[in-house]
């Protein structure tokens, strides 16, 4: 008998330094510019909503895990990310207790009851927003305020409401406002440049891949061909930068448990999100459709994953013979 020339160990053979904590820290870092811009433009009120939302998300997670005698995992930061994302898609003048309702729905109903981190079948933050929307539609649609330049808290139309009104054609100054976030809207969705910077940071650190954001944004742009008012490149660009499209494409559609695994699946998923978003925006009753588009596509993820399953190396088409 010869002695073996190689050592035998069990899988996995390739390790990475990735961990949940690290990923969550990177996402928080990537989200912070947009959140800071939101607080800058909408004032203390926006900061309060962010603080309440994050705090209640963390408390609900810890409380539920305590109550069910499971290990408390709030230090992994996932509840903080969910709370922050929820706050960023809420209107800044919302009554301050409503984020607590949303955080309860997001953390307890959607995440923990289905098994905790990695087992939620839809995006918790978006589900939280959808539940507040269904419960308290009036404040959710009217609590948008103008960014403070001089005067504080004037109710203001969001860019998407302007688009919905029909007789609006954006000028260069409108695009500048949209890029830096000097427009009405949810707390963290207005500053396009800050969101893009965060998104590129996530791509650079390989937290997300390009497939979902790119197919989301491209398909939404292509859908502008079906604009009832006729195609206009300027309006298309405005649509892509306005509302929650960028925030959704980079930070919400890419959530791991609720998006497909394979590159092809991700492209189908992103394209579906883009198409549904624009159908809602152009033809639907709501001015914004990103949230519902992502939630709907979340539900199709198991199906997508099933049909784009890669062939096992060596297996024949049509299954093993």
């Amino acid at each position: 008998m010869e002695s073996p020339r190689y050592t035998v160990t069990s899988t996995p053979h390739i390790r990475s330094s990735n961990s949940i904590d690290k990923t969550m820290r990177l996402v928080l870092l990537a989200l912070s510019p947009a959140a800071v811009m939101g607080v800058f433009f909408f004032g203390v009120r926006a900061l309060l909503i962010i603080v309440i939302s994050v705090a209640s998300a963390v408390l609900f997670e810890a409380g539920y895990q305590k109550l069910t005698r499971r290990p408390v995992t709030v230090t992994d930061g996932s509840a903080i990310v969910t709370g922050l994302l929820l706050a960023m898609i809420l209107p800044p003048a919302l009554p301050l207790w409503m984020p607590i309702v949303g955080a309860f729905a997001a953390i307890v109903l959607v995440k923990q009851l289905f098994g905790g981190l990695g087992h939620n079948f839809i995006n918790p933050a978006l589900a939280g927003r959808a539940i507040i929307m269904a419960a308290y539609a009036l404040p959710m649609t009217t609590a948008f305020i103008a960014p403070r330049i001089g005067v504080d808290t004037i109710t203001s139309a969001t860019p998407l409401l302007l688009l919905e009104s029909g007789d609006f054609y954006p000028q260069a100054s409108d695009f500048v406002a949209l890029l830096i976030g000097n427009v009405g809207g949810s707390i963290g969705e207005t500053a396009a440049i800050a969101i893009l910077a965060g998104g590129i940071f996530l791509l650079a650190t390989k937290v997300i891949t390009w497939h979902i954001p790119v197919s989301f944004i491209v398909s939404a742009g292509v859908m502008m061909v079906f604009d009832p008012g006729g195609f206009s490149g300027v309006l298309a660009a405005y649509h892509l930068l306005a509302g929650g499209l960028l925030l959704g494409a980079f930070f919400m559609a890419t959530d791991y448990p609720t998006s497909p695994v394979t590159p092809m699946g991700k492209i189908i998923f992103g394209a579906g999100c883009g198409v549904i978003t624009m159908v809602i925006r152009l033809y639907g009753g709501y001015p914004e459709g990103v949230g519902y588009a992502i939630l709907l596509m979340n539900l199709t993820v198991p199906l997508i994953d099933r049909y784009v399953r890669p062939r096992i190396l060596g297996a024949r088409k049509g299954g093993a013979k």
């Binding site: 009554p95 109903l109 269904a134 419960a135």
Partner: peptide, 15 residues
């Protein structure tokens, strides 16, 4: 205190 319209809708029934 605003009414929680979700509770009147079918999803509220399920919840």
């Amino acid at each position: 205190i605003p009414r929680n319209t979700l509770m009147i809708l079918p999803p509220g029934g399920f919840l």
